[in-house]
């Protein structure tokens, strides 16, 4: 419980999850989980397979409606109760962006277009619901230019500038992962949720990923919520870790605290003592 104090000390809360419970028939996927994620910090959710990590994400982004619980996003524009919002409003108003374990780009759009479509709402407003776009209004052209600039910025950062006109489905796997993160960032989120971003990456790529996530935290000053199995990513960059097991929270705190928490070691390794590099 030192964790709660830690967050308060290290950053202002961005996301508050209270008593989240999600059942599928008789299966309790998440059982009364509460935690906080702070602004400008990287919060990781870890746990063995089937612990309910992705389900937490699905509740946050409106795919599932939780049975019990409150999900509050402390947005600069005010608090949003996520469990009551429709999916697209969570992205549009509460500014939560998300990536997937199995990448979900728009494969038959170009790389650049994937990043433009992420700025849909800005462009829609600027084009007065599309009419302006058709007539080529100045306001729409400016907005589109800005959108392309933002897209170019992320393409540069990801090293994808040369592939801007490729169909996204033709990119190599590692590039697709980075493009998905770039697309999420183009929505200008306040909270970025990443579902196993290191899955399928080699060592070098996952080191680059670490760097990228830290860059996003420090330069773009947003909160990151991470579900991850790769402990080199989790332990390397997390400011705060929440550990789930069978849908329950078993530990919550700084990487050092969690690493040495007997409950975590038990969940991962049975009755071993040294959980330093525990793999899920």
């Amino acid at each position: 419980m030192s964790a709660e104090a830690d967050i308060a000390a290290s950053g202002k809360p961005l996301l508050t999850v209270e008593h989240l419970t999600m059942r599928f028939g008789g299966l309790v996927a998440i059982d009364d989980v509460s935690f906080q994620a702070a602004d400008e910090r990287i919060t990781s959710i870890i746990g063995p397979n089937g612990a309910g990590k992705t389900t937490v994400f699905n509740c946050l982004t409106g795919f599932y409606k939780p049975d019990v619980g409150r999900l509050v996003l402390h947005h600069p524009n005010g608090d949003f109760l996520l469990e009551r919002m429709e999916g697209f409003l969570i992205a549009r108003n509460a500014s939560i962006a998300r990536t997937f374990q199995n990448i979900r780009l728009f494969p038959r759009m170009t790389v650049l277009e994937n990043l433009i479509v992420a700025q849909h709402n800005v462009l829609m407003r600027a084009s007065a619901f599309t009419l302006g776009g058709l007539l080529g209004s100045a306001r729409y052209r400016d907005a589109e230019e800005e959108a392309v600039d933002l897209a170019r910025y992320w393409l540069d950062r990801m090293g994808l500038t040369d592939q801007a006109d490729w169909e996204a489905g033709n990119l190599p796997y590692g590039d697709q992962r980075r493009l998905e993160i770039a697309r999420a960032m183009c929505t200008k989120p306040v909270l970025l949720c990443l579902d196993e971003p290191a899955a399928g990456l080699n060592l070098r790529e996952s080191a680059e990923l670490n760097e990228l996530l830290v860059f996003i935290r420090d330069e773009h000053r947003i909160g990151l919520l991470l579900v991850e199995h790769d402990m080199s990513v989790v332990m390397g960059i997390s400011d705060h870790i929440v550990v789930l097991d069978y849908g329950r929270k078993i530990s919550d705190g700084t990487p050092d605290f969690v690493r040495n928490d007997p409950a975590v070691i038990r969940a991962y390794l049975g009755e071993e003592e040294d959980g330093e590099e525990g793999y899920g």
Partner: peptide, 25 residues
Amino acid sequence: RTELGRAQRACEQDLGMAALLGIDV
């Protein structure tokens, strides 16, 4: 060319993902 068309093409490829980008599906 237009934003609506882009949203339509996005929805065509992945409705759920389009919603996650804030598109009113």
